[in-house]
């Protein structure tokens, strides 16, 4: 592989992502774990930019870093006594390790297949410029009856359901 600037930047973001993720798992302090999750998410945003998908990078920052991470921190604060974990491993670590390993193997098989193009489920994507109006194309595709309008509306129902359900659960907790 040629050592271009792109490769170096990719390596930097990949390391940020992995180091952040590792930190989340190893941190004993839940708040710090949440912050390290942010680092990891930021790395992913960087990777999106490298993939010429700036809209997804913005989604990553706005939604995951500015929304879900805050939600997690609020969640941490709600759980009394959970802030300082006494041990890094919990009782189900062996099961978790097996699941993680299996997921990793499946992902690797898929990635290798796609990359080598042999029996690839996806056509190999052309390397080159992404259309300047890709965001507008995305917007048009979302509400196009021939494309994604049904999943789009279903997503809306899902969001509505998730919201009401989550609020119900949270308020039940409060009543106890």
């Amino acid at each position: 592989m040629e050592l271009t600037i792109e490769v170096v930047v990719f390596a930097v973001f990949a390391i940020i992502t992995l180091a952040g993720a590792l930190g989340v798992v190893l941190a004993r302090n839940l708040f710090r774990a949440a912050l390290l999750l942010l680092v990891s998410l930021f790395g992913v945003a960087g990777l999106f930019v490298l993939l010429a998908a700036p809209f997804l990078a913005a989604v990553q920052v706005l939604l995951y870093m500015g929304g879900i991470a805050i939600l997690i921190i609020f969640g941490v604060m709600l759980t009394r006594g959970m802030v300082q974990a006494r041990q890094v491993m919990n009782s189900q670590w062996d099961l978790a390790a097996v699941i993680a390993l299996v997921t990793f193997v499946i992902l690797m098989i898929v990635i290798v297949q796609v990359a080598q193009g042999e029996g690839a489920p996806l056509p190999s994507l052309p390397r080159g410029d992404v259309a300047a109006d890709s965001i507008a194309q995305l917007g048009a595709a979302l509400v196009d009856p021939a494309q994604y309008v049904l999943p789009f509306e279903v997503a809306s129902v899902l969001l509505a359901g998730a919201l009401i359900g989550a609020v119900y659960i949270a308020r039940e907790d409060e009543a106890e």
Partner: peptide
């Protein structure tokens, strides 16, 4: 702009 401003909360 919206994305970077939301980092301030963190």
């Amino acid at each position: 702009v919206m994305a970077v401003s939301s980092i301030g909360a963190i």
